[in-house]
Simulated assay, not measured.
Amino acid sequence: MNNRSRVRFNINDCVHVYYKDSSCRECINICPIEDVLSQDDYKIILNAEKCVSCGACVGACPSEAFSLDGFELERFYRDFLSQKENVLSCKINLPCLTVLNVEYIVAIILEKKEDLIFDTGHCSKCFVGDLLEEINKKVEEANYILEKLGVENRAVIRELSLEREEKKEKERRAFLKNFGKAAAGITFWALMPRVSSFEEVKEQPKNIVEEKVGIPKRKILIEALKNQNTDYSDVKLEVDKISFTSDKWIDNTKCTNCSVCYNVCPTGALKAGAERLKILFEPKLCIKCKVCHDVCPEDCLHLKDTLNVNTFLNETEVLAEHVIIPCEECLVPFSYKGDTTLCPRCRELEDEIRDLLKIGE
């Protein structure tokens, strides 16, 4: 077997395709191996020769642009729910504990109705680097959400240092004799069945206005929350304590209805309302990438302090409503705020002329 990485990166699902100057660098920040992931202009570059296929980028990417050849998260999730075990370990059932994001962690605990144990006994000796801090962050965030939901069970970190039984360990050692250097330290991959590589996704032009990113992990969380048959009307989460979604508000006095924010929203969480006179928002689709904030020319999009869980699950909010009238000077339609019948451009031109007249005086 060669050293080729099992990590797959679909550039078309990366938020940088929707806005090249996006501030998102989650994959680069979490990667434990130097120079595996980098950014060239707007493109995230994967160095497959150095990648050890730990899957940390899979758990970190908000738009699920990364995946692992031979390991499907949703299938793992379904299989894990059907089993009696409640322990996650890099030596038994995951390539690395960081491959799971908070949504999966919360969903597993809600559905299994028991504590979920994270075996971190191997983290300090892991050759790929210390990812324990990232594991702790995810566990802390998941437990915050569970506490707010009124759920007693928690994600628990324990140094169990679990290993597979002796027979499989011998098989692993025999396998590793011919295994590539880059991934030789990851027991999980040594015990995975060999799978055929598939071609890298080829870059093709993408209509970012029409083609939005699907987020399977969000469907998993929503399904788990709804399966609890609980009234979440009074449950609020502090937006700065959750990493995967948000709630927003728009300063309607500044918004010009330029449409940029919802045109570049990667998931369609922001969208136009009837006749494009409203800006709508679905928190259940938001991935908190903040692309909409980055592109807003008037800086009128803001995060709310809290997110109601019932709103997250069921509601589409109206963030802004506009009355469109023709400018009395140039006749170009614009969003009327009740103060002037001149469009912003004509107002700006009027101000420039006024300033020139002052200089002339």
Rank of each mutant, 00 (worst) to 15 (best):
E114P: 05
V128F: 09
I33D: 07
Y104R: 10
I359H: 14
G59D: 04
E203K: 07
E211G: 01
K138W: 02
S246F: 03
E64T: 14
D79W: 08
L303D: 14
A48K: 06
V15C: 11
E328V: 15
D40W: 00
I145T: 04
I45D: 00
V235L: 06
K217V: 06
K20C: 01
N12T: 00
F281Q: 00
S246R: 09
C265W: 09
L73K: 07
Y232D: 07
E282G: 04
E329C: 07
E159I: 12
T341S: 12
N3W: 03
V102Y: 01
P32V: 05
L100E: 08
K137A: 11
M192S: 13
N47Q: 04
K248Y: 12
F175R: 15
I117A: 03
E350L: 14
G59Q: 05
I324F: 12
E140Y: 06
K212W: 05
I222F: 03
A142L: 07
Q39P: 00
I324R: 11
E165T: 15
N263E: 14
N101L: 07
L94M: 11
E321S: 09
R158M: 10
P344E: 07
F118T: 06
T340A: 10
E111N: 12
F127T: 13
D13S: 09
R8K: 10
A107L: 06
K241V: 03
C286E: 10
D119K: 09
I279W: 03
L97D: 11
C300R: 03
F188N: 05
F334N: 00
C31K: 03
N153M: 12
K50D: 09
C61P: 04
R218C: 10
E163F: 12
S335G: 08
Y232M: 08
D351H: 10
V264H: 05
F175S: 12
R172K: 14
L162R: 12
N263G: 08
C343G: 05
E159M: 13
R172M: 14
H302G: 04
K219A: 13
Y262M: 02
R8F: 01
D351A: 13
S23H: 13
H293F: 15
G185P: 06
V102G: 04
L94S: 09
K20V: 03
I208Q: 01
P32G: 10
A183K: 09
D234L: 14
R6M: 06
G273W: 07
N47G: 05
F334E: 02
V291G: 01
L342W: 12
D21P: 01
E26P: 02
A272Q: 13
K248H: 07
I215G: 03
I250W: 00
K138H: 05
L237P: 04
K206Y: 00
K181F: 08
K91S: 14
G338E: 13
I186Q: 06
F175V: 15
E210A: 14
C24H: 10
T245C: 03
K290C: 08
C27L: 04
K226G: 06
C300N: 02
T98R: 07
A56D: 00
R354V: 07
T256Y: 09
Q228I: 00
N314H: 15
H122G: 09
E114C: 15
K278I: 15
E321C: 00
